[in-house]
Design a protein around this nucleic acid. Structure first.
Length: 661
DNA sequence: ATAGGGTTAG
């Protein structure tokens, strides 16, 4: 179905060309826009606030990230404000050399003042200063619960879990270590670092040591559940636990639960929690509705989605950008292209399509349905809005899937000229486009870029590269890439491995071929049977008999008789003499009748090396029991050369026994 | 007086 090509000439971007005033008038303070809870400060305490800002004039309830505000409700209004402490804090914060300012003003400052400075550094993301100041405070024992709590939080933000854990374990006072705020902030810090399992372990440990968790604790832990595989069952356990402690779930905890259901594709469970929260008298907000919609989007359940939007509206809530975007996702996944087109236009008219997200939703779906042309039209619409480049990634992948290599390559180049921005997904996408199009120089450039940006390749990257190097007959490069891939713990695809083994064999790199073969053998997937025979023939051709023997011995049932015979002949002629008997026995064990000619070669090898007499005797003694006799030429050869052997008497006896039999 | 949580794109 053509959606955009035939769409009526509706003005797609009505506000875009008019003026910039729209943007100016709709710019709200970040806090208000994001629906955050704003803590209102009573007017009377206004004079008690420390307030550092560039202009010194702004005093609004919104706080920019660099504001330092403080309220102190306990202070008696009659007491004059201790301005010298305020000034000292301001001086330290504003000083280019805060360390020396701090030591100068040390006597004037109390712990809570230092905490203000600590939070200022934290909000400014000056992690080095946060760390340094905290050390300074610890050395002077000028810390309290709040200092630790704030410090942990900033260690989480700066991704320094190690330091946070170190500081936590260095807390000597037991009641401080069990303080719920400090524990909560450390647990949050661990989740920021995606250490969910360790976080739960730590939580259990803390409880054993005497922590009494509160609603915050459960809120933090539940948030972690949304991002892990078995998060839902873990979440249920936590809910049960918090209820058994007499705590009650609030609006936000329900929001988290709904998000967990949505991310684990559990619609019915989401509905149940939704009803439960209603029954408890909590009224759902936009977050709850959007999580429900998100759950419905997985299967594109537009009926339920429409219902929920209806009831949301009748509850007096106005759908926002996220709600409508999620609804778009529902329509797109549900295959309602006409309705998704209409909704996209609504989004545009409402000013909610100022970034590429809604376009990406539609585009990806069109592309995956195979309607690449429509998707491209959608990409062109995207070009008029603030785009991050995701749209390019979708479209380039679509061209690649569709075999439109030239288009993919051109779009990749276009992306690079517009954006100088790379992440792993984008690099993989571009790499695939250049590889498919055979643009070697660009491929190498992407690899250099990846290296320079210290972005480590993932399974996709390796897979793309190995395929490409194979196609370009750069077998050694392909081999090195596979080695690299293997050493990084990635499973190498069976098909690529097999063709690489063959090519390496053909191009005179049998050892490398064998190394790839071994990766395949010890990988989780069982390789197809034919690979063993191919490997065996490569090794025989390269005279790598020892390895050939290993392959033959372990996979004889998957190797054809001619190949086994070829192996037997070749090994007897040139294989390690010490292994001749083993090879003979192994071939016999797997049901091959050893050819007389093969035995003859073996015996001539032994005659040429009389010091291997023991092995010869062993073979001669073994043969009759398995039904093998020497042919006449072998016997003649032995008799003629028996003078070479110390135990010629014994050899003669064995030959004589045979004559009788 | 510190800790916290939920929604959309490759």
């Amino acid at each position: 179905m053509e959606v955009f090509a035939l769409s009526p000439p509706v003005p797609v971007f009505p506000s875009r060309h008019s003026s910039l005033s729209v943007a100016a008038t709709t710019s709200l303070p970040a806090g208000a826009r994001k629906n955050q809870r704003v803590i209102r400060v009573p007017a009377s305490s206004g004079t008690d606030r420390y307030h550092i800002s560039g202009s010194g004039a702004s005093r609004s309830s919104q706080s920019s990230s660099l504001d330092v505000t403080k309220t102190d409700g306990k202070r008696n209004p009659a007491t004059p404000v201790n301005s010298s402490r305020q000034d000292a804090v301001a001086e330290v914060i504003q000083s280019p050399d805060w360390v020396s300012a701090l030591s100068r003003l040390e006597t004037k400052l109390q712990v809570q003042d230092l905490n203000i400075i600590l939070r200022f550094f934290g909000k400014s993301k000056r992690w080095q200063d946060v760390s340094q100041l905290f050390n300074w405070m610890q050395e002077r024992e000028m810390t309290n619960i709040a200092s630790y709590s704030s410090f942990m939080k900033y260690m989480g933000e700066s991704r320094n879990l190690i330091r946070a854990l170190h500081v936590y374990s260095s807390i000597e006072d037991e009641s401080t270590r069990n303080n719920v705020s400090i524990c909560n902030s450390l647990l949050g810090c661990m989740l920021k670092d995606r250490k969910f399992e360790s976080c739960i372990k730590m939580f259990n440990q803390m409880k054993e040591n005497g922590l009494v968790p509160d609603l915050f604790t459960y809120s933090i832990l539940l948030a972690g559940c949304a991002k892990v595989e078995h998060g839902y069952s873990q979440a249920l356990e936590l809910v049960e636990e918090l209820e058994s402690r007499g705590l009650h779930m609030d609006n936000v905890i329900y929001g988290t639960l709904l998000a967990i259901c949505a991310s684990h594709n559990l619609c019915e469970e989401a509905e149940r929690f939704f009803q439960q929260m209603n029954a408890e008298g909590l009224s759902p907000n936009l977050f709850h509705y959007s999580s429900l919609l998100n759950a419905y989007s997985v299967d594109g359940d537009h009926k339920k989605a429409d219902e929920i939007v209806k009831s949301m509206k009748s509850a007096g809530l106005v759908p926002n950008k996220v709600i409508l975007t999620t609804l778009l996702k529902v329509y797109v996944r549900g295959g309602l292209l006409e309705r998704s087109r209409e909704l996209l236009i609504d989004l545009e008219n409402l000013g909610y399509a100022e970034d590429e997200i809604p376009f990406c939703l539609v585009m990806d779906n069109l592309a995956k349905k195979g309607d690449v042309r429509e998707a491209k039209i959608c990409l062109n619409l995207c070009l008029h809005v603030a785009a991050d480049g995701y749209s390019y990634s979708i479209m380039i992948s679509a061209f690649c899937r569709n075999g439109q290599l030239k288009e993919a390559k051109e779009l990749a180049r276009e992306y690079e000229t517009i954006y100088d921005k790379y992440d792993l997904v984008m690099l993989n996408t571009l790499l695939r486009a250049y590889c498919n199009a055979g643009e070697m120089e660009n491929v190498m450039q992407m690899l250099r870029k990846m290296d320079a940006l210290k972005i480590s390749p993932d399974w996709n990257t390796f897979q793309i590269l190995v395929k490409y190097f194979l196609k370009e007959k750069l077998y050694h490069l392909a081999y090195q890439t596979v080695e690299d891939m293997h050493s990084k713990g990635h499973q190498v695809g069976e098909e690529l491995c097999s063709s690489l083994i063959l090519e390496l064999g053909k191009s005179g790199a049998p050892s490398e071929a064998f190394s790839v073969y071994n990766m395949l053998r010890y990988s989780k997937t069982t390789p197809r049977k034919s690979i063993h025979e191919k490997m065996l023939n490569i090794l025989i051709g390269a005279k790598l008999f020892k390895n050939a023997y290993v392959v033959m011995k372990d996979n004889a049932e998957d190797i054809s008789a001619p190949s086994l015979d070829k192996f037997a002949f070749s090994f007897m002629q040139a294989g390690n003499i010490n292994m001749i008997n083993d090879v003979v026995k192994a071939l016999h064990r797997c049901g091959r009748k050893i050819d007389e000619e093969v035995l003859h070669i073996a015996i001539s090898r032994y005659i040429a090396r009389p010091e291997k007499e023991e092995l010869l005797l062993h073979l001669l003694k073994w043969m009759p029991g398995q039904g093998y006799t020497l042919n006449s030429s072998s016997r003649d050869l032995l008799l003629k050369n028996s003078h070479l052997f110390g135990q010629r008497q014994l050899i003669a006896e064995i030959l004589a026994q045979r004559n009788q039999g």
